[in-house]
């Protein structure tokens, strides 16, 4: 009798385990979200505002903890037009970068009073000494450039080694996530063989991206923290990019953000690139 009870209990446990696993599957299937849909939603959340005007402080931190500060202003319209202007320090003040559709990029060099068209070979190089490449600063619609695969769903265990001390930050990250593996689409040249993107289930905000080199090694990690809702839109108030190869990181702190200011298209032209 007791044996039967144990067998029944085991059966119940096994079945309930199976049911829970099935529930997990159902959760993905139930939402009917494919990898590309999740990625498009993630792109959509980040690029939701019609336009953005953001003041940013960048802190460059080397392996000895030595810091360098940069201040810049970013304006963005939709997901395809973005302009970045450096405000400080003095040796980069006035340096400005304009990213337009079809890989058209311009750099204004105030020392030469000239706007230079920059070719796509520059895309994978460091942007003004930071750990972000020009491509990292420019590529905003991952769904256009990468093929995603849903590889799993996790809590934020993967973030633990990177996010330290700050308990508030850690608690903020306690959400369920989709894990997407992104590989560059055919014909699109990237410096990375794949990206692993963590997308929050509750609001589809991509909170972490791991960048793998062409050799398959983890090269860089980007973490978005202090994710808050400003008006209608979600925004990460801090973004940290760590270059594991160089043991160097860049922290971007958003000090001010304005949405939907009806920024005109003409602001995203060479005409405004050189203007103070």
């Amino acid at each position: 009798m007791r044996k039967i009870e144990i067998m029944s209990l085991m059966t119940v446990l096994m079945v309930s385990g199976f049911v829970r696993a099935e529930e997990g599957k159902q959760q993905v299937q139930g939402t009917k979200l494919t990898a590309i849909e999740i990625l498009k939603k993630a792109d959509g959340v980040v690029n939701a505002p019609k336009d953005q005007d953001i003041a940013i402080e960048m802190i460059l931190i080397d392996k000895e903890g030595k810091e360098k500060n940069r201040k810049s202003k970013i304006i963005q319209k939709g997901s395809e037009k973005r302009m970045i202007k450096f405000l400080s320090p003095a040796d980069v003040e006035g340096l400005a970068f304009l990213d337009l559709p079809d890989d058209v990029m311009y750099l204004y060099l105030p020392a030469f009073k000239k706007i230079r068209r920059i070719a796509s070979h520059v895309k994978n190089t460091s942007f003004a000494g930071t750990d972000f490449t020009y491509d990292d600063m420019a590529s905003l619609n991952y769904a256009d450039e990468y093929v995603p695969e849903l590889t799993g769903e996790k809590k934020t265990d993967g973030l633990k080694p990177v996010i330290k001390e700050d308990q508030k930050q850690w608690q903020e990250q306690e959400f369920d996530h989709y894990i997407l593996e992104l590989k560059p689409k055919k014909g699109i040249q990237k410096d990375y063989s794949k990206l692993i993107m963590w997308v929050r289930k509750d609001n589809f905000y991509p909170i972490k991206i791991e960048y793998y080199s062409r050799e398959g090694k983890l090269h860089k990690v980007m973490i978005r923290t202090k994710i808050e809702k400003e008006g209608e839109y979600w925004i990460a108030k801090e973004v940290e990019m760590s270059d594991l190869k160089k043991d160097h990181k860049t922290k971007m702190i958003i000090s001010e953000v304005k949405y939907d200011q009806d920024l005109k298209d003409e602001l995203f032209t060479e005409r405004y690139l050189k203007r103070r």
Binding site: R116, R117, I118, A119, S120, H121, V122, Q189
Partner: peptide
């Protein structure tokens, strides 16, 4: 003129 040919900046 300025542009790119196969990722190489040309002018």
């Amino acid at each position: 003129l300025a542009g790119a040919v196969c990722n190489i900046g040309v002018w």
